[in-house]
């Protein structure tokens, strides 16, 4: 890194950009090679894509069959829930694609692979997050994307800068929130051995919750998946706001704009747990 600072160009902006590119090089190198290696096993990759696609399709079908039995659920109709599903599932899929492999932390811990990360000059969490990318989940994301596009097409939306901004904010912060969930779950694996099922209840249960109309939840559920794990912010609340639907108890529609706050909260929790987890692993003060 020293050579870099010395080789600074005349304009500071250029240097910063160069520094950033060099700083990102390690992560890019790992990710590019992971992607290449996955795509190179053609037959397996194709089958992985199919199963990932099927999984997302079935998740959509689970929502759809309910609306086949009744027309309106929690104040929403199927075309409206499509928007909730599209937003939440796309955000989840993208987070899963990028950092879903944090689920593998118990394996890394048992095999001692984590020690190897300590020997490299990058932050530990960033190394773990960028140690892999699961391309087959692109197939999953495509289902969410199609649902979102369909939802946007069939609903009566007052298009404007506000609506577009709301969508972008909701999707980006939903994605960040789900990513934080994966990191949070990974961090707890430092303490829980064989306890992944417990955290899965909130990560994958969170995804399931995020695609539901939050208006049907009981109060404890609203507390857990509405706020503590802010799942309602990924799809339901932005949809209420976007379609100008009546707000259920405890969940006013202005919360639809609060996705970034939810993401911030989720990340604060994730980083705190990560910090504790690493401390526990290194044995400092424990």
């Amino acid at each position: 890194m020293i050579f870099l600072r010395r080789s600074g160009g005349p304009r500071p902006g250029v240097t910063d950009e160069l520094a950033l590119r060099v700083r990102l090089r390690p992560y890019r190198a790992v990710l590019a090679s992971r992607a290449r290696s996955q795509a190179s096993y053609r037959a397996n990759f194709a089958l992985d894509l199919v199963s990932s696609f099927l999984a997302a399709l079935v998740e959509l079908a689970e929502v759809w069959v309910l609306f086949h039995a009744v027309t309106r659920l929690g104040g929403l109709e199927f075309h409206q829930i499509l928007l909730v599903f599209g937003l939440a599932d796309l955000a989840f899929s993208l987070a899963d694609l990028a950092v879903g492999h944090c689920d593998n932390l118990p394996t890394y811990l048992r095999a001692g692979t984590l020690d190897v990360f300590y020997l490299r000059p990058q932050p530990l969490l960033l190394q773990l997050a960028t140690s892999d990318i699961t391309l087959r989940r692109l197939a999953r994301a495509s289902v969410g994307l199609v649902a979102l596009i369909a939802g946007l097409a069939v609903n009566d939306i007052a298009w404007g800068v506000g609506a577009v901004a709301l969508l972008v904010v909701a999707l980006a912060s939903g994605c960040a929130t789900f990513a934080a969930m994966f990191v949070w779950a990974g961090a707890l694996q430092f303490f829980l051995i064989d306890g992944a099922e417990m955290t899965n209840a909130f990560v994958y249960g969170g995804r399931y919750a995020a695609t539901q109309p939050a208006s049907v939840w009981s109060r404890p559920l609203k507390a857990v998946f509405g706020f503590f794990f802010p799942m309602a912010f990924a799809g339901f609340l932005p949809t209420l706001r976007l379609l100008d639907l009546p707000a259920p108890a405890w969940l006013p529609t202005w919360l639809g704009w609060c996705g970034p706050l939810a993401a911030l909260w989720a990340w604060a929790m994730a980083l705190l747990c990560w910090h504790w987890g690493v401390r526990h692993y290194r044995g400092g003060g424990g």
Partner: peptide, 14 residues
Amino acid sequence: RESFRILAAIHALP
């Protein structure tokens, strides 16, 4: 060779 390339990037070797 690929592993070496990644490690070179990780250690920011010119």
